[in-house]
Simulated scan of single mutants.
Amino acid sequence: MALDLLLIGLAITLFPLPVMAFVLVVASPGGVRKGLVFIVSWLACLVAVIGIVVLLTGGQPPAPRSPPSTAAKAVTLVIGLGLLGYGTYRLRRVRRGAMTPSEDADASASAARTREDGGSAAPGPDAGASSAPAAEGPEAAEASGESAGPHGGVSLWSAAALPLLLQPWGMVGAAGATVVQADLSDAGNVVVLVLFCLVATSSLLAMELSMVFAPERAHPALMALRRWLTRHKEPAVIGLCLLLGLWLVSRSLYELTG
């Protein structure tokens, strides 16, 4: 369980779309406070999923090969297949030229220029998707600046809502299926769950702390990071989905057939 949750947590924290949105949040006026709201909302989603699973299991893992245990492994298998399918779908779109990094870069640059001029940004040519399989709308909103407040910044309400929209729910669902194995009577399992939440939030925490202690250096560095992610978003999304999906499928098949 520990290794599975660590890998899922790493995939969640490296997923580029929430990182890109968080940069906009902390770069806006009052960004440190809004970034904290974003992180609290992000953590609340993770804790809610873990809490629901723990309530269903009573904090005790089901017996091996029991119906609940088999169902959890089957869910993990389905999510893994979904991640593989989603990564393959995006890879084919990139190869067909339907989705290119340059288009995303042009859309973000156009949105930034529009906000600077005081106008409203238009959606970019590719809305993308925030997770596998999640809706494509949140990314379009983030890229086009639709979550911006009246003065071109990000409101507190938007900062709280963005994690709900941009959370890679497919990966979080895989974590929930893995948490079924957690035994809360074992302190080590509790530590693993806490570490999972911290790992899955580590990229956001690092950016928030950099803005708190070194805002002058952090701001241009974060904006450069966002520009880099805009150009390399597709390979990152595809790679994370395919690698994590392959791990989940192989692990669940081994456990189901072993």
Rank of each mutant, 00 (worst) to 15 (best):
A175C: 05
F22E: 03
D104S: 05
A44C: 08
E116A: 10
C241H: 12
T13W: 14
L46C: 01
A214I: 10
D183N: 10
E208W: 15
A140R: 11
L91N: 03
V37K: 02
A127H: 08
L5P: 00
R115M: 08
L14K: 14
A135L: 14
E234Y: 15
V249R: 13
P123Y: 15
A129T: 07
L10N: 03
S203V: 13
V237C: 01
G118N: 06
L229Y: 15
G118W: 14
T178I: 07
L222V: 10
M223I: 13
Y89W: 15
E234S: 09
P168W: 08
T57W: 10
M211C: 09
P62G: 02
K34Y: 05
L7M: 09
V37I: 13
L17A: 03
A177T: 04
A98D: 12
G82K: 02
F22M: 10
L195Y: 13
L84D: 01
D104R: 14
V54L: 11
R33W: 07
L205G: 03
M171C: 03
H219I: 09
A177W: 12
A98L: 14
L253F: 08
S110I: 04
L36K: 04
L242S: 02
L17Y: 15
I238R: 13
L5K: 04
E146V: 09
G153T: 08
I52L: 09
L6D: 00
G87A: 04
M171H: 05
L46Y: 01
V47R: 14
N189L: 09
V212F: 10
R93K: 14
Y254T: 11
V49P: 01
V190K: 09
I50Q: 02
V249I: 07
V192P: 07
G152F: 13
D4S: 05
G245K: 14
G145T: 08
S185N: 11
D117E: 12
R227T: 05
W228S: 03
D106K: 11
S102C: 08
S131R: 07
M171I: 04
A112P: 06
T13C: 03
E139N: 08
P235R: 12
A134E: 07
A141M: 10
A48Y: 14
G35I: 06
Y86G: 00
G59P: 03
A122F: 14
A121V: 05
L10Y: 12
G51Y: 15
P18T: 06
A21G: 03
R217W: 13
A135E: 11
A21Y: 07
K233W: 10
E255I: 02
G9H: 10
L166E: 12
G30P: 05
P150A: 07
A134I: 06
L184S: 01
M211W: 06
A175G: 01
S252P: 04
A71L: 13
L84R: 12
S252D: 00
R93H: 09
V37T: 07
P68M: 03
S250E: 04
Q181F: 02
G118L: 14
E142H: 10
L6T: 02
G245L: 06
G152K: 09
A72V: 03
A187K: 15
K73C: 00
L43S: 02
R227M: 07
G9N: 05
V23E: 06
V75Y: 00
H232R: 12
R92N: 00
S158Q: 11
G9Q: 05
F22P: 01
I12D: 00
M20S: 02
A127I: 11
G51N: 11
D186Q: 10
A129C: 08
G258T: 12
V179H: 01
A48H: 13
L36R: 09
